[in-house]
Amino acid sequence: MIQELIDELNAVEDPALRGRLATEALESVKAFNTAVAAIRREAARELRAEGLTYKQIGERFGPEGEPLHFSRVNQILKGEPTGKLAKLARDAETKAGE
């Protein structure tokens, strides 16, 4: 599904239109990521309520053979952003508070 969108965007000849459509697609991806993250967070909360440990949740949520680390499960449960952009945002907040 995503590859089809990429192929369609690449096929647009007009660079201005291709750029605008790419921008719209990126905005949609942000909304998609937010919605999917909320679904995953709620699922993790339900499993915690059932008594599963962070490790057990990580085993169920990770790709086959690659469980999520328990600290990642903790971040999911808290709803904390992660990754490079989250680190940049945290660093910026730290500098602003100095």
Rank of each mutant, 00 (worst) to 15 (best):
A37L: 09
A49Y: 07
P81N: 12
R72A: 13
F32N: 03
K84L: 13
V73W: 01
L77R: 00
A43Y: 10
T94M: 08
K78N: 08
M1A: 11
I76H: 02
A49K: 07
Q3I: 14
E4W: 09
A44C: 11
R40N: 04
L5G: 07
R72F: 02
G83S: 00
A11C: 08
E50W: 05
L88G: 01
L21M: 15
N74S: 11
R90I: 00
K87V: 09
A11L: 08
A44P: 05
L77G: 02
R48F: 15
V29C: 11
T23H: 04
K78A: 02
L88T: 02
P63W: 12
A16P: 01
K87F: 09
S71G: 10
A22W: 01
G51T: 08
L68D: 02
V73C: 02
N74V: 07
P15M: 12
G83W: 01
E80M: 09
L21R: 09
E8D: 14
Q3E: 14
D7F: 13
A86P: 01
L26K: 11
E50Y: 11
V12Q: 08
E80P: 12
I76D: 00
R48V: 08
E93K: 10
R72V: 09
T34Q: 11
I2H: 12
K95T: 08
A43Q: 12
K95S: 01
V36R: 14
E59Q: 15
T82D: 01
G79Q: 00
I76F: 03
E46V: 10
L88S: 04
P81A: 14
H69S: 14
Y54A: 10
L9H: 09
E24G: 11
A35E: 03
T34E: 12
R20Y: 14
A86C: 05
K95E: 05
L77H: 00
E8T: 14
A25H: 05
G51C: 07
H69D: 13
R45F: 10
A89P: 00
E27T: 09
Q75M: 10
A11H: 08
G65R: 01
R72K: 09
T23W: 02
R41M: 15
L68F: 02
P67I: 02
V73H: 00
K87S: 06
K84I: 05
K84V: 06
L17C: 04
A37W: 04
E13R: 15
E46Q: 14
R20H: 09
G97P: 00
A89E: 03
R18C: 12
L88I: 05
L77V: 14
H69M: 12
I39H: 11
A44K: 05
T23P: 00
L5I: 15
E42Q: 14
A89Q: 04
L9R: 07
R90T: 00
G51I: 04
E66F: 13
R45E: 14
A89T: 02
I2P: 00
R41I: 10
R60F: 01
V29L: 15
G83R: 01
P63K: 09
Q3W: 13
A43D: 04
T34N: 06
L9I: 14
G58R: 00
G83F: 05
R18V: 10
A43N: 08
F32K: 04
G51P: 12
